[in-house]
Design a protein around this nucleic acid. Structure first.
Lengths: 216, 216
DNA sequence: ATAACTACCGACCGGCCGGTCGGTAAAATA
DNA sequence: TATTTTACCGACCGGCCGGTCGGTAGTTAT
């Protein structure tokens, strides 16, 4: 697998290429992005770019894998160290949201361009996505076992969570009204406590409002 | 504007064409869908299809407008009759979610392929989307005024709501574990009350739970 | 009967697409 | 210094793209 094209190209430059390509594809969509677009953005010609990549599909596949690797490193792996499901859920939502707002890391989302891949590539990506999904749903299941989950279907809840988080990439803008931390904090609050305040109950679990107690 | 191509083609057939095109574009994306794809799905040739449409972009534009019209008719307009912001919010989320799950109506989402349009078309669509967004956020503002909104930013909350709802189209499948009503009900619960149950408070506002404990 | 119109189709167009190939200048290696 | 390797580029290819045009069979109007 992975048949190196010709020799071994510089890895740092390759990373630059992935990052640039990911940004463009994220903005315009995979099909609307031509190999020429990517090459030009990097200040080179299409033929030059082909020195580094083996094809448009494989480039997309590699970027997706990189995005999923990032998700694993920064969200799933550290989350697994947390035994309390409530704390783990909070961490996952926060860390995943930050990954998305960080822009560069927004790569994760284009994992949804999966249909553009070959069936074999699709299977691999889908499998990795599935693993993350199951991990997240599993956390919700644990939460239910602890009596701390609202009366919701965990599958629907997991998808909804991912929907909220992934949608971030469409509206969050660097330098906008909310910064990265604030946006993530908002997503956490909405996801965990919803929008409607229960009348007369004062659900005050000491909501520390802004930054202070955030891990990171 | 709208310069009729040649004469006035049959309107019923035109609706069929919009519906078929919307489905394909929704599944494959605008750029990945060729005019030929759409024509073949309708059992005709590309040239034949061009008897009805004035171009690929304009087709997309028309479909988007149709989707937004549907959203207005089935969600925004009836919602405006509800004066209580809490009831209105619940209605909006439920009705919008149902519109998405109804599949055929999922057209709304492809409003996000907006970048494929001409600047003038983009402006029009963005404006209509914005009106809906403002209406939804306004409802949250009213909820805040009534002391019934959690401590969240209404802009972030509105986007998150739309993210959850729009994401539905990616995972909801007809004939899956959840039917249309159940899926909408789940979205409503998650959006309004969040995932985490406040310990020791028993937030039982008599959740009418249809389909015993949990669907699935 | 004939004129007009609707609903298409086959053939074709220029243009951009992903991808290839034979170079080449500069840097690294020997 | 000679040789190999790296990092590209110009030119080119077949193919599909959106879109056009000149038909034509069938229906409707007169």
């Amino acid at each position: 697998m992975r048949a190196q094209k010709k020799s071994a190209p510089n890895n740092e430059r390759l990373a630059e290429i992935y990052r640039a390509a990911a940004q463009i594809i994220l903005r315009k969509g995979y099909d609307a992005t031509s190999v020429n677009d990517i090459a030009n953005a990097l200040g080179m010609t299409k033929a030059g770019l082909y020195h580094y990549i083996n094809g448009k599909k494989e480039l997309l596949f590699d970027i997706m894998n990189f995005g999923l690797w990032e998700l694993d490193e920064e969200v799933a792996a550290p989350a697994k160290a947390l035994s309390d499901p409530a704390a783990r859920l909070r961490f996952i939502v926060d860390a995943h949201a930050r990954l998305v707002t960080r822009g560069q890391g927004a790569i994760t989302i284009l994992v949804d361009e999966v249909t553009a891949l070959t069936p074999a590539q699709q299977r691999k990506i889908t499998q990795r996505k599935r693993a993350y999904f199951d991990f997240l749903r599993g956390t919700l299941d644990e939460l239910r076992a602890a009596g701390k989950l609202q009366d919701v279907d965990t599958t629907a809840a997991t998808f909804s969570l991912l929907g909220m988080i992934n949608w971030l990439s469409r509206w969050f803008r660097q330098g906008g009204a909310l910064n990265e931390e604030q946006a993530a904090e908002q997503i956490v609050r909405i996801a965990l406590h919803g929008l409607v305040r229960e009348q007369g109950v004062r659900s005050q679990k000491s909501v520390v409002r802004m930054a202070p107690p955030r891990p990171r």
